[in-house]
């Protein structure tokens, strides 16, 4: 085996893979969240649709997105490999094990939380990513007044295979900008009218919260980045940003559409 192969098949190497992919997914969450905040804009989805187009058609981002898909898959596969190994390491289970008295619940249930998240990611991507790329979606036409950007007229255009996913024309005579985008916003809006679907999202975000409360900090421990001067910052970010802020902000989106 080569040096790298040996490294990544060792127990510590496998954990490094988990940590690095995990941290990469965390950075993605931030980007995804900032983008998705466009959903809260009162512009009938114009900004959100523009953002969706940008994310799917700007080459560097596309490259990163494939890295991201790979990370999710590797993170899940390595988790499975490690879990199987861990199971083998204790062939006879204890009849009583008081885990709650020596370790946080989150840390002992990363596999369950991760599985929930994986199911969620599949559903989530199927409903939005897949549909955006492949389904025959209608288009939204935004006519934005150049004099008053808050004055937006929206109309729906039917699916047309020849139409660009996103186009922008500025009509100086009419003093307006015409933007035509594939209408992902509508899909989002429609999806979040169903209560159980919203609930699925909220549950998934709760799982995300618990997964990251342990996972973020744990990744730094695995990498060996535990400088006592910065450790409190890592802990703070892990709990308050990735454990609280990010999941709540994400969960707010379906709730926003449901109650809107």
């Amino acid at each position: 085996m080569s040096n790298f192969a040996k490294t990544f098949s060792s127990s510590l190497g496998k954990k490094l893979v988990m940590a690095l992919t995990g941290l990469f997914l965390c950075t993605f969450l931030i980007v995804h969240l900032i983008g998705n905040l466009q959903l809260f804009k009162d512009d009938a989805g114009q900004a959100f649709n523009a953002y969706a187009y940008f994310m799917t058609h700007f080459t560097p981002i596309k490259v990163v997105s494939y890295l991201l898909y790979a990370s999710i898959i590797i993170h899940a596969i390595y988790a499975l490999i490690i879990s199987i190994g861990n199971k083998k390491a204790r062939p006879v289970a204890y009849s009583v094990q008081a885990g709650s008295q020596n370790s946080p619940w989150t840390s002992r249930n990363m596999g369950i939380l991760g599985t929930i998240l994986l199911v969620f990611i599949v559903v989530h991507m199927g409903d939005f990513w897949w549909k955006y790329h492949n389904a025959e979606l209608p288009y939204a036409k935004y006519e934005i007044s150049l004099d008053n950007p808050n004055n937006i007229q929206v109309s729906e255009l039917p699916y047309d295979a020849n139409r660009l996913v996103h186009s922008e024309i500025t009509d100086l005579q009419a003093r307006k900008q015409v933007v035509i985008s594939k209408d992902l916003y509508k899909i989002v809006n429609n999806a979040f009218q169903t209560w159980w679907y919203v609930l699925l999202y909220v549950i998934a975000m709760a799982a995300l919260s618990f997964h990251l409360i342990h996972g973020f900090r744990s990744a730094f421990q695995t990498i060996g980045w535990n400088n006592s001067k910065y450790l409190p910052l890592v802990r703070f970010l892990g709990v308050w940003v990735f454990g609280v802020l990010v999941p709540i902000a994400f969960a707010a989106m379906p709730l926003y559409f449901f109650f809107k």
Binding site: S11, L16, I82, N86, K88, N102, S103, P104, S218
Partner: peptide, 29 residues
């Protein structure tokens, strides 16, 4: 044939000599 560390911290909590998992981070590094 020992398992992998998942940073639960149970070891540190149960260690009769209260050895810290800081050691684990140090070894990882």
């Amino acid at each position: 044939g020992f398992g992998s560390c998942t940073n639960t911290g149970a070891c540190e909590a149960e260690c009769p000599k209260e050895i810290s998992i800081t050691n684990i981070a140090r070894m990882n590094r």
